[in-house]
Design a protein around this nucleic acid. Structure first.
Length: 407
DNA sequence: CTTCCACAGGAACCAGCGGACC
DNA sequence: GGTCCGCTGGTTCCTGTGGAAG
């Protein structure tokens, strides 16, 4: 066991690698966005009318994660506001990440705060909050550019009513105007919208293509210049980060993560250079950390479901929902817990499928019915290791379900 | 060709909570 | 202090369904 002092000393003396760590963080908006010049120009020209006090076209932006949508929008917004201040133009902007906001109500309340209206975080009817937003807008006047990032998440969960209201909002305003910019990670998002909403929301449209490996390399090189001291990256490190991220779906965020974690690993072991092996290690580390985090934060019943699959997987690789439910009920019995309904457990399995902990797919077995066949999507050792940390679950890892006893 | 299994997954509803308003 | 509100995390009830068995 090294003492904490040693850890700190090593960190402080290991300053040979990072020059500025923040440059590699997600929310950093760089001065240069390589390979997005066209998009920046297009977005800029679309938004420009607000500088003269006109409403600009509503805009819809699609693209997968890490294709630079958010970065480009924030970049243009930043410069637009600078210009607006110079010209003393009555422009305000509001950026809301709908996934982080979580609910329609909280999106509305962010919009409210951008026009200087304070609303309580619960307790008011949604329509009341909307009215206050209108009032605030009218009082403030000018043009509001509202950016709704990851809007697909909101619509999937709550439908498009809020969006519908927002697209019609200009009809109720006399002293002010609102332009909307929607950003979606989901390319099929259009299908979820009412045609009326779609047509008014996407007066203009942009699609962000994924970066290829060469473009990712340029991005990384740009950032690396700011983030690291000269010569600490071994040849091929940037290329590898770019290649790994390009192989998935050209996610710049992921390539930056790889680079950052690889450098942190190198720093931690006191190396003077970041090598390719650090990148490989980083790749594993990121995925493992993500999974462990997810499992640890699972509610108890979900953990029991996962545990049931783990136990059944000892004998068979894929299991039916009914079998999982039986074992799950046994486990609940063991620790004196009232089991949830099968309907709910079926839902929990689907949730874990989406989280990437389980793999399940619907199959029909003819006369023997239709079910989801489920298996673990992660190493058994990982599940076991995390469950062993928990007093209660520790016991259950060693439990033998009744259906496996007779086999 | 029909039947029928063992669920999937949608819809409606409910209880409890934290919190605002009057 | 009663009433209203939204959110979470459930339940109940329901209809739908792929394909092996009959």
């Amino acid at each position: 066991m090294t003492s904490l002092d040693e850890v700190f000393d090593r960190f402080l003396s290991g300053g040979g690698i990072f020059k500025n760590r923040e440059v590699l963080c997600h929310d950093y908006v760089p001065e240069k966005l390589p390979h997005r010049e066209e998009e920046i120009e297009y977005l800029g020209s679309t938004m420009a009318p607000v500088l003269k006090g006109y409403r600009c076209s509503n805009l819809f932006i699609y693209g997968k994660t890490g294709t630079g949508k958010t970065a480009v929008v924030r970049y243009v917004l930043k410069h637009l506001m600078k210009k607006a201040e110079e010209l003393n133009a009555p422009v305000s902007t509001c950026y809301v990440n709908c996934r982080l906001a979580g609910t329609e109500y909280r999106v509305l309340s962010s919009l409210c705060s951008s026009v200087g209206v304070k609303v309580p975080f619960t307790g008011l009817a949604q329509s009341e909050v909307f009215q206050r937003f209108l009032k605030g807008l009218e009082k403030k006047g000018g043009v509001l550019l509202a950016v709704l990032d990851e809007i697909d998440v909101l619509v999937k969960a709550y439908g498009d009513t809020l969006l519908y209201d927002l697209t019609r909002i200009n009809g109720e305003l006399s002293n002010s105007k609102v332009s909307l910019i929607g950003i979606s990670n989901d390319l099929r998002f259009k299908d979820m919208l009412d045609p009326r909403v779609l047509s008014s929301l996407s007066e203009e449209e942009m699609v962000f293509r994924p970066y290829n490996a060469a473009e990712l390399r340029d991005i990384l090189e740009e950032r690396a210049k700011l983030a690291f001291h000269d010569g600490v990256l071994a040849d091929g490190v940037i290329g590898l980060c770019a290649a790994l991220a390009a192989a998935e779906h050209g996610d710049a965020r992921r390539s930056l993560d790889l680079l950052r974690v690889a450098a942190e690993l190198a720093e931690r072991e006191g190396a003077s250079k970041v090598e390719e092996r650090h990148v490989r290690e980083a790749e594993k580390r990121i995925e493992r950390d993500r999974i462990e985090e997810v499992i640890r934060n699972l509610p108890l019943h979900s953990k029991l479901v996962l545990c049931s699959v783990y136990l059944l997987n000892r004998k068979v690789s894929t299991v039916a929902t009914g079998d999982i439910y039986n074992v799950y009920c046994e486990l609940c019995n063991q620790i004196g817990l009232e089991p949830l309904t099968q309907r709910r457990v079926s839902g929990l399995i689907s949730e874990q499928d989406m989280l990437g902990l389980l793999n399940s797919r619907v199959v029909s077995m003819g006369r023997h019915g239709r079910t989801k066949k489920t298996r673990l999507a992660i190493p058994r050792s990982t599940v076991k290791a995390i469950f062993m940390e928990d007093e209660q679950l520790k016991e259950l890892v060693a439990y033998t379900p009744a259906c496996l006893l007779k086999a």
